[in-house]
Write a protein that binds this DNA or RNA. Structure first.
Lengths: 208, 208
DNA sequence: GTTGTTAAATTAACGATGTTAAGTAAAAAG
DNA sequence: CTTTTTACTTAACATCGTTAATTTAACAAC
């Protein structure tokens, strides 16, 4: 039953319908385990219909990632109301970890798998817009601590500090996602590990 | 030309021939991109022959991982000759990162993808054997610093410290492997980021 | 030495996947 | 009323991991 020309709005609507169905499946079982046919069935379409809206599976994944970067930025921006720069940075880190651990398959898709470099032409995320770009938010949050003179005096590169903080939190989250079930390691509780990382980063970066 | 019974040695030999060919391909292009047929062709066998030695692709990957944990432990144990515990821990971290960045596809296979929990019955790595178990090495190295009273006095859980150090280094390496080509982030040099992480961890963990 | 038996390998084939090509129905355009 | 365009579907393809059926060759028993 293939009807008639669709308005641009209807096209967008179907596009997001596909993305929402795909996201739900990806998040619950990971991108590899989900087939195009399955996504299509979920929304009552044929598999090939997806290709009218996305060039291939990779493009679909990328598009979803893209809107999820928005979701991450949106979730994190709530912390920006905290006035104390140091408290804000800590809350920001906790929020980031919470996102990672609440949506591990998502997080894996966004930060643990190599995607071809994201084309800013196509991306719906505006880089360096604090509302939309979580990395930009991180830079701001760290830089405000930096400007407040809270870091050790020999630390002069604010962005390098930001990348270190990111790496530290990412390390804990990524190991948790990939290796939590590995009986080889007698893991401490994830909450404990997160707190320990934040404590260590703080002590290592902040002025005494 | 399929001849007759092989001695156990010949079977082992073919098994490692398969593993070596597979490893080389996996390391250069990642596990997903390499097909069983390709591995087989590389050693002049038919694809199905591999299944006479490994239950499936996953089992082959796991077997390779397994021997690579040995390789990692072997590479890292050279640092154990360093006498000063703190210097030894630093060198250990650098060695770990070097392994990760020299063999990124390997590292991804070992630490960045979820494998079903490793069965110690099957594994050829002896857990808690310092010669073979890199995580055990890490625990020892950290614990020696701990016993030397070098950590901050309120840090009482040596294994939690080890896991934090691991997470920090893993974070830098993992982001490098997955996101180095992401133009979104203005990455500092990888060497700089590694050094900054080590500096920060040290300052955050060690007694003043 | 012929004849089974068995191990090691192969070729054929299966089902699933991402994807492309060809076809179809209905609305719009002329 | 015809023609074109649009949204979709079904068929089909190549490739993948994997299994089944088949071949080949060495050994064992008589």
């Amino acid at each position: 039953m293939p009807p008639k020309p669709k308005t641009e709005f209807e096209r967008q609507q179907l596009r997001t319908l596909i993305m929402d169905a795909a996201r739900e499946l990806f998040v619950s079982r990971g991108v590899e385990a989900v087939t195009m046919r399955e996504i299509a069935k979920r929304i009552g379409y044929s598999a090939t219909s997806i290709y009218l809206h996305f060039a291939d599976k990779e493009a679909l994944i990328r598009a979803i990632c893209d809107t999820d970067f928005l979701a991450l930025a949106d979730a994190l921006k709530n912390n920006l109301v905290i006035t104390d720069p140091v408290e804000r940075m800590l809350a920001f880190g906790r929020g980031y970890a919470q996102f990672a651990l609440n949506y591990p398959n998502h997080y894996r898709m966004m930060f643990m798998t190599e995607h071809p470099p994201c084309d800013p032409e196509i991306s719906s995320v505006q880089q360096n817009n604090a509302e939309q770009d979580a990395y930009f938010q991180l830079k701001i949050v760290v830089n405000e601590v930096f400007l407040a003179g809270k870091f050790k005096p020999d630390l002069k590169d604010s962005e390098l500090i930001a990348q270190t903080v990111w790496a530290g939190m990412h390390g804990v989250c990524a190991l948790q996602i990939s290796m939590a079930n590995d009986i080889w390691v007698n893991w401490a509780g994830i909450e404990q590990r997160l707190q320990m990382m934040q404590l260590t980063l703080m002590r290592g970066l902040m002025r005494d």
